[in-house]
Design a protein around this nucleic acid. Sequence first.
DNA 1: AGGTGAGGCTACCCGCCAGTAGGTAAGTGG
DNA 2: CCACTTACCTACTGGCGGGTAGCCTCACCT
Lengths: 218, 218
Amino acid sequence: MSEEVQRPPERARRLPRAVRERQILDAAVQVFSRYGYHSASMDEISEVAGVSKPMIYTYLGSKEDLFGQCIRREATRLLEAVQAGVQPDLPPDMQLWHGLRSFYRFVAEYRESWVVLHRQALTVGGSFAAEVTAMRTRAIELVAALVVSAGTRKGLGEQAEFSGEGLSAALVGAAESLADWALEHPEVSDGVLASWLMNLVWLGFNDLIEGQVWKPSD
Amino acid sequence: MSEEVQRPPERARRLPRAVRERQILDAAVQVFSRYGYHSASMDEISEVAGVSKPMIYTYLGSKEDLFGQCIRREATRLLEAVQAGVQPDLPPDMQLWHGLRSFYRFVAEYRESWVVLHRQALTVGGSFAAEVTAMRTRAIELVAALVVSAGTRKGLGEQAEFSGEGLSAALVGAAESLADWALEHPEVSDGVLASWLMNLVWLGFNDLIEGQVWKPSD
DNA sequence: AGGTGAGGCTACCCGCCAGTAGGTAAGTGG
DNA sequence: CCACTTACCTACTGGCGGGTAGCCTCACCT
C-alpha cells in the first residue's frame, strides 16, 4: 500500500557540501541574471539548483549573502580571464588589445556572469554596488595608466594625465556597451569587437597624443 | 483640551489635480532614482510628494503605471533637450558635437532624470526596459546615420555601413559612461566632456574613413 | 442655505516571499 | 547494531508593501 511506485524526479541525493554550493551558486547566477536581484525568488533558485530552500540558507546564508558570493565569484572569474590574456611587458596598445579580446571572449562564454555583474549588481544599493563600482574604477585606472604611459612615452605630460581619467571612463563605457551589443550579435567574434574598439579609440588617442585635435568650426 | 496646538506640518491643501500630478511625478522620479524601482515604496513616494498614498493611485494608477509615466516624461525631456540643440543642416561632426553638449547639459541639470532612465529603467523587466532600449537603439541608429553619412561623403561604402552600428553602440556607450563619470565630477563642463568624446571618437572615425587602421603587431 | 462633486485622508486587507523550526534518512565509527 | 553526524526535506511564520474601501471637507453654485 504505502509502496513507493513514483520516485521523485531523480534528484541527485547526498552530495558533498562543496558540490552543492557550486550548484547553488550556478543556479543563483542564472536566476539573478534573468530576473535581477529583487525579482528573483529564493524558491526559484532552489528549484533550479535542484535543492530545497533551507540548504541555501545553511550553506550560503541570506539572499544578500548569496548575491554577494555570486558577485565576488563572477568578478574574480572575469578579472582572472582578463589577466590571463595580458602580458605586462608588451607595449600599451598590445596590452589593451589582448585585454579587450579576453574580455569579449569571457562575455561571450559567460553571458550570465556578465549580466549579473554589469546590469544587476548596481541595482542592489549597498556594499555590492560599491564593490562592483570599485572594480570598475580599478579597470578605468588601469586603462588610464596605459593611456598616460603611451602619452608620456611620446613626450606628452600633464595634459594627457588630466583628461586621461575621463577618456578612460569613456573607453571602459564603450567597451561595456559594445559587450552588451555583442550579446545580441553573437556572430561577431571577440577579435572583431576588440579591433573595432582599438581602431575607434586608440587611433583617437594617438591623434590626441600627437597634437591633432578636433575643434568646432563655428 | 482637544484644542489643536500642533498644526500638521503645513501641507498645501486642496490643489488642482494637474499640480498634484506634477508633484507626485517629481517625487517619484526622485525616489526611484535613489532606490530603484523595487526598493522604492509607494509610501515613501507619497510622503516625499506631500500627499497620501490613495491620491497616487487615483491620479496615476499602479506603481508600474507610475514608473512608466516617469520614464516617458523624462525620456521626452531628454529627447527634446537634445533635439533643441541640433541643427540638421550642419555637417555630421558639428551635429554630433551639438547633440553631445546638449546631452551633457541635460544630465548635469536633471541628474535624477538621467539616473532613472539609464540605471533604473532597465531593472524592471517588461515594457519599460523595451521602451528605453528602443529609445537607446534610436539614438544608436541616429549616430550610425551620421557616421555612415560622413563615411560615404568621403567615398567609403559598405565597409563603413557594416561596422557602423557596432561603432555607434560603442560611441553611445562611451557617451553614457562619461555622463556617469561626470556626475561625480561636476566641475567638468559640458563643452569639455563633449570635446573629449569628439576628440576620442571622431578622430578615430576619420582615421578609419581615410583607411588608416590599427593592427596588432604580433 | 444646502446640495454636489472634487480633493484628500485614515485605516485596513492580503499576497508574496525571505527566513526558520523541527524532523527524516543516509552514511560512519565503534 | 547503536550512537552520532551530516545531508536534506516539508511545512510553516511574520512582515513588508502594493493596493483599496469608505469617509471627511472644503469650494462653489444656485
